[in-house]
Design a protein around this nucleic acid. Structure first.
Lengths: 147, 147
DNA sequence: CGTTGACCTAGACCCCGGTCTAGCACCTAA
DNA sequence: TTAGGTGCTAGACCGGGGTCTAGGTCAACG
């Protein structure tokens, strides 16, 4: 395991991505540095590549689309000088994550509420349905309001 | 706005779903009660339907697949007696949400770290790249370790 | 009346992100 | 020398979740 020098299978193991996906990511331009090849054409990933991929995994897991990761990768590939742009991109993603977090917490509230009510319901011996449309008031007609 | 009696367009407005999606959801069996129709065949949603749909929106937003929502809807459609199963389903989804939350927080840490480092980097006058592979140690060859 | 706007159905289309296959090349170990 | 394992490319395929189109029906308004 001398520094650098992992092949695709090993990288797959330690990133949790499939080899297919690794190749896909490369084709899609997600890699921030050209992957080396050994003399018979097989990919050779440096440990830096693997770290980068681990980051990609987290970006994906937090909903960053492949194209965006690609843009970031490109910026890094281009080297120093565009840090402001990278920062911008990262900030935007951070915003995106925090939004997801609040939405998710909101949903969790809903689900928690439902779970609670069903638990109480079942504990109390199942009288009535805590989540049922009312016993059908009438045969609803849209009452023709144009609004 | 007498109780009950919204048409699809209005429902689209208040749920944020498109009319296309509303019809899709119906076809996919996401609705927990048969949508009424007026005498010319147009859908007439009760306010209960709309509430249900609002819940569906949250389920989706928290990553519940359509098929699962469909199962839940079916249980509700079938009426009292299967509350335990609904509870099970909801609990599982809650678990799923909390997992997402922890993963997301983890990703947020990463992104926060990167943002911080770029901010400090830029504030300090951009020396070196905080996110760059080391200056290319050698021309990595995989050193043929079979492991 | 006719026109306009909301609605209907069936079905095609699309994007995204992966997953898999076919057919081939290499390399090392038995 | 051959077999097994791993890798390669190009490209097909897939599932999920929408989104849109074509072609038609109402119904209400001017």
């Amino acid at each position: 395991m001398a520094d650098g020098g992992l092949r695709i299978g090993q990288v797959a193991q330690r990133t949790g991505l499939s080899v297919h996906t690794l190749r896909l990511y490369e084709r899609a331009g997600l890699l921030a540095s050209e992957v080396q090849r050994d003399r018979s054409g097989r990919r050779v990933y440096s440990t830096w590549d693997v770290e980068w991929l681990a980051n990609c995994v987290k970006f994906r897991a937090s909903g960053m689309p492949l194209t965006t990761i690609g843009r970031l990768a490109q910026l890094v590939r281009e080297g120093s000088g565009n840090e402001a742009e990278r920062l911008e991109l990262l900030r935007e993603h951070r915003r995106h994550i925090t939004e997801q977090l609040t939405r998710l917490r909101d949903c969790l509230d809903l689900v928690d509420g439902k779970v609670d009510s069903y638990e109480r319901h079942l504990a109390a011996g199942a009288r009535g349905d805590p989540w049922q449309q009312q016993p059908r008031p009438t045969t609803a007609e849209p009452s023709h309001q144009t609004g």
